[in-house]
């Protein structure tokens, strides 16, 4: 246990040893885990979810970005954004609320400082993008298109549309379509539309995104929620409302993945409260071709590696291929 502190250049001891062990097991796995999502080729179906993994640096000594299927970046906007007033996070039963407010350094700083680092570390990079108007999204994606190291675009439609009195793009099929079209025009990269669950009929929105040219659908973003502080008798979050994530939302997410898989032809990337390989398999069996791991990393930074390893073990045990398992629960 005792080591020279001068040599503490990593997440030492238990963490690093376990991470190395997991990576060895994953490399030696007998079941192929690679997947191709509309031209986005991944070595395994596990992606770190936007906003929970920064730009990959913080967790890199434990989880080299190259060991993941892909890294989905913190959301990037045209201009730098300072984010919302604190408090921005609070724990809730089996989950948490957040209202970070898209804090990010802007696309120029992303291209200059973050993307080269990710590329150097051989990450498959999905850039999550957000804007205030459909034209914003288009301009942003034009900047990213052709940048070396960008493998795909994930369109965050869960932001307020300033041209529609702040209504979230993704709650309306028409504004979802407008955003996806604006992005589609600017790039030949795979375009993934990330849907909000805060809608009456998610299939309707998914179909609109597909018709507008999305190559894949990812879901779910966080469920809108809030918490009240009993001591101050005010909302806990500075922004009043926030997005609920964590295991609490998982059944809602599994249901929506199931629905979108039925409604659309394009592949689905599932997320929402995934913390273990068993959780991930539920999404895959419901119809997800790949999955994203988000807030689980905060508690267990090794969750993505454990999930890759566990998916392999599940497939080995059942004799299924990843492709056969995808959507298997939907069989008649």
């Amino acid at each position: 246990m005792h080591r020279d502190p001068q040599h503490n250049d990593s997440w030492a001891w238990a963490g690093v040893d376990r991470a190395a062990d997991l990576r060895r097991r994953i490399a030696a796995a007998e079941v192929p885990l690679d997947v191709n999502i509309a031209g986005l080729r991944l070595s395994n179906p596990v992606i770190t979810a936007s906003g929970t993994y920064g730009f990959g640096r913080e967790y890199a000594p434990l989880i080299p970005p190259a060991s993941l299927g892909a890294v989905c970046t913190k959301c990037v906007t045209l201009e730098p954004r300072a984010g919302n007033r604190p408090p921005r996070v609070t724990e809730t039963p089996a989950g948490m609320l957040n209202s970070i407010g898209l804090e990010n350094p802007g696309v120029d700083a992303f291209l200059r400082e973050e993307l080269p680092w990710l590329r150097e570390h051989q990450a498959r990079v999905i850039v999550n993008v957000a804007g205030q108007t459909a034209a914003d999204y288009g301009r942003l994606v034009a900047r990213l298109d052709g940048a070396p190291g960008v493998a795909a675009i994930e369109v965050n439609v869960s932001c307020p549309n300033v041209e529609r009195e702040g209504m979230t793009f993704g709650v309306n099929p028409k504004s979802t379509e407008a955003v996806v079209r604006a992005v589609r025009r600017e790039t030949s990269l795979p375009v993934i539309c990330k849907l909000t669950p805060n809608v009456t009929d998610v299939s309707e929105i998914a179909t609109a995104a597909e018709e507008a040219g999305a190559d894949a659908i990812s879901l779910i973003n966080t469920l809108q929620g809030m918490a009240i502080d009993l001591d101050t008798q005010r909302p806990v979050l500075g922004n009043v409302m926030g997005g609920l994530s964590g295991p609490a939302i998982r059944p809602v997410a599994v249901r929506m993945v199931w629905q979108v898989r039925r409604a659309c032809k394009v592949p689905v990337i599932g997320m929402g409260g995934i913390a273990t390989a068993e959780d991930a398999m539920e999404f895959i069996l419901a119809g997800a071709s790949a999955i994203q791991v988000g807030s689980a990393c905060f508690t267990n930074p090794l969750a993505p590696l454990e999930i890759i390893d566990g998916i392999g073990l599940y497939l080995q045990r059942t004799g299924l291929t990843l492709e056969q398992a995808t959507g298997l629960a939907q069989r008649p």
Partner: peptide, 9 residues
Amino acid sequence: ACGVGACLG
């Protein structure tokens, strides 16, 4: 939330 600078919470 994360404690390591990833979530910006």
